[in-house]
Amino acid sequence: MAPMPRHRPVMRSALGRVRGLGPARAGAHHWQAERISALALVPLTLWFVGSVLARLGADQPAVAGWIARPWNAALLLALIALTFQHAVLGLQVVYEDYIHRKAVLATAILLTRFLALLLGLAAAVAVLKLAVTAPH
């Protein structure tokens, strides 16, 4: 006799399940977030490359002073947050394509998220420290 299919309790209403969910069961959030962060990163990246280019070889006080200016600090924080968000989303898709063991996949995704959070926080703290303590 074939084994009975295991009963999976569904905690949402039928409408709740259907709304916004495609066959992937997870909706389009990941895909959209990847595109939206990409869109925002286009001008941010160009601004960052141009700004660094104009300050090549500058010493620490000059670079720190540039980072500390409010708009620069704000744009850098946006760049940091969106870069790591976009990197995590993109790397997860790569992992999902090539890592077939669920435990390894979950571990890789979690490690990437933790590392990105840590690196992003470190970069953000550095920018905020300069922005808050800058001599005026």
Binding site: V63, I67, L119, A122, A123, A126, V127, L130
Partner: peptide, 12 residues
Amino acid sequence: TLLLVWWLVAAA
């Protein structure tokens, strides 16, 4: 991004 983070943290 490691290089970016290093650069920012070192500047601070």
